[in-house]
Amino acid sequence: MSIIETKQLAFEYIRRDDEGNVEGITRAVDNVELAIEPGEFIAILGHNGSGKSTLAKHMNAILYPTEGVVWVDGKETTDEEYLWEIRQKAGMVFQNPDNQIIGQVVEEDVGFGPENIGVPTKEIWQRVEESLKTVGMYEYRKKSPNRLSGGQKQRISIAGVLAMRPKCIILDEPTAMLDPTGRKEVIGAVTGLNRSEGITVVLITHYMEEIINADRVFVMDRGAIAMTGTPRQIFSRVDELKALHLDVPQVTLLAHELKKSGIGHLPEAVLTTEELVAALTGSGRMGRNH
């Protein structure tokens, strides 16, 4: 059974002017069909306004479909009976770390969720400890969140979701407001909990270099899924990505340019520096032999 599945999902909202008159209808998500399997690492790309956040908010019943159905772990999100179960199974981390931390002390913040659903005290502490260790923030458990960096705050947010023992975690541009170190910390923590804990990850991002570890990538445009595939399949379509105003990693762009300039034996899509160096120094030697 898929952990998240959508069928003909559409979401519309009504735009109103100052007087409340209807100006028009925006179809933010348009006929999206997808199935995410347990343990997968999924990345969703797309420019602002492409519908990726709206889609994500359907995955833990913050928004409900205008048309179509969304199932989380087999439960329909519109079924009120399962609302809390769904929110616990599919946790969400948002863009701004300052908007999602409420505790005065790190461990108190992480324990808020489980406490709220009536987990026994002893188990709360156990969960807090495990969650903080998973994201590498255990030594900060007695600190005030105010004094932490953006990357550390985001890891606390992730720990807060982990303490709910979710099957799936959805991250909506978790690194957009962070510096390079913070970005690395957060992506490292996310990749780790996918690999070692087997938690399904849905990562929404603008940064292409963050998706190279994903199992599958969905590229969204105008509310619909425009491209799907492995990172390598997606990155081999450089011109299409550029047309969708997405950033392609410099190494992929450079390989693409070199290929266009007649370096024929480069692979279809180059994702890492190591790959490019291996391909080029191989081809370099051949060049000298001729």
Binding site: D179, P180, P249, Q250, L254, T273, E274, L276, V277
Partner: peptide, 18 residues
């Protein structure tokens, strides 16, 4: 806590491999 553009790392790696 900073770094360089990816292109710097690529050129550095290529240079090192001769």
């Amino acid at each position: 806590g900073l770094g360089a553009p990816q292109i710097t790392y690529i050129m550095e790696a290529l240079h090192q491999s001769g």
